[in-house]
Amino acid sequence: MIVHPESIRTGDRVPHGGETDRDVLDFSANTNPYTPDGVEAVYERALEASRRYPDDDYHDFRTAAAAFVGCEPERVIPTPGGLAAIRLAMECSLEPDDEALIPYPSFGEYAREVRLQGASPRFVPHDELLAVDDGLLEDCQFAVVCTPNNPTGEATDPDALAAFAARCGEAETTLLVDEAFLGFTDLPSAARLEAEHVIVARSLTKLFGLPGLRAGFAVATGERRDALETARRAWSLGTPAARVGAHCLRQDAFVRETRERVERERERMHEALKRRFDVVPSDAPYLLCDVGDRSVDDVIASARENGVAIRDARTFRGIDSHVRVAVKDRERNDGLLAALGVLEADEGYGTDGGDDIDEGTRSE
């Protein structure tokens, strides 16, 4: 449903984190190092069921997703990952020559997906987006809010987001709220707004440690919901993704324990990393670090020599001296801190006080 063939010929791929060398600790991608108990058994049963096409209604998945974000099941649109939800929203909302308000620095795929529709991104600093003047808002047919923002990590205040959504409605601007990392917080989903011009995109794979499974969903209402449902690809989730996704979305204890661990470890890592870097406060499972006068290339190379991959944040628009590091569990985080030379000797490496492994299945 990409509407502008020329945009495909002139477009580029967007760099992402992710490390394929399994001997290297991967702190370049912001995924949970654990998965919920029972995932393997659910996947095994689903694999056998995959001899037939999935049930395209995805009733169980929709029900679990709706309970997770607090909406009615019929408002849930299953997609193969959060990025697929973003593309679907833009396919159904943008026309060639439209303009879209895009925050920066933020997820690079927003601008790419806008351009693939033949539309143009209008870049706004991420911390100024909600305060843009009415004239600019009225000029744009689409706007994106990422909460927590990637790579800076701060979550948007729900009341401020609701106020901005109301302004978007008055301007007849479609608002896409990307909540890929919101599950790591206890903040409410924008799905609660139930406004026809608001679309929510969610990713399961980061919170539940299964990025290769490709499961996510969009939430919409009214005619916008109907348009997304009509436009989504048939069998948009494979049977394993749908069944494992539904299982994960019901693991309340796992989600609660993950949030507590990430908050605890993020604070500890922030204190350690600020000995060497300027660290941006974060509500997300990652920290953005300004390396200052040091060479970003040297910091990345030095970490890798010590067995750790970190994200070159210069790939984000408007950033030229930063790296981004994920927040994992205590043992892995100590490996990162040691590789970056900020772990004090008396803090120990993998010492007592680490996270319990029984919170879920360790993802190796």
Rank of each mutant, 00 (worst) to 15 (best):
H4W: 15
S7M: 08
I8P: 01
R13E: 07
G18S: 08
D21P: 07
D23Y: 02
L25F: 11
N30P: 03
N30E: 07
N30W: 07
P33L: 01
T35H: 04
E40W: 08
R45D: 12
E48G: 03
A49Y: 01
R51T: 15
Y53N: 10
P54N: 07
D57S: 14
F61D: 09
F61C: 06
R62D: 02
T63K: 04
A65P: 00
A67E: 14
A67K: 03
A67Y: 02
A67V: 01
F68K: 13
E72C: 05
P73Q: 02
E74N: 08
V76C: 02
V76W: 01
P80C: 05
G81W: 10
L83D: 12
S93I: 05
L94D: 03
L94K: 08
E99A: 14
E99K: 13
I102T: 13
P105C: 03
F107N: 07
A111W: 06
A111K: 06
V114Y: 11
V114E: 11
L116V: 04
Q117W: 04
G118M: 05
P121V: 15
V124P: 06
V124T: 09
D127P: 02
D127W: 06
A131S: 11
G135H: 13
L136M: 15
L136T: 10
L137I: 11
A143V: 12
C146V: 08
T147M: 01
N149H: 13
N150W: 03
N150G: 02
N150T: 14
E154Q: 14
L161Q: 00
A163L: 11
F164W: 05
A165Y: 13
R167C: 00
R167F: 00
E170Q: 13
V177K: 01
V177P: 08
G183S: 13
E194W: 02
A195I: 01
A195D: 12
A195N: 05
E196A: 11
I199R: 05
V200D: 01
A201H: 02
T205D: 15
L213P: 00
L213I: 03
A215E: 04
G216E: 07
R224D: 12
E229I: 03
S236F: 08
G238Y: 00
V244W: 04
V244P: 09
G245K: 06
C248S: 07
Q251V: 04
F254T: 09
E257Q: 14
R261Y: 09
R261W: 10
E263P: 01
E265G: 01
E265F: 00
E271P: 00
E271N: 06
R276K: 15
D278F: 05
V279C: 09
V280C: 07
Y286W: 13
D290F: 02
G292A: 12
D293K: 02
D297I: 03
A301R: 09
E305Y: 02
G307H: 07
V308R: 00
A309Q: 13
T315I: 13
F316I: 08
R317Y: 15
V325H: 00
E331H: 07
R332C: 12
A339C: 09
V342M: 14
L343I: 04
G348M: 01
T351V: 13
D352M: 09
D356A: 14
I357A: 14
D358A: 08
T361S: 12
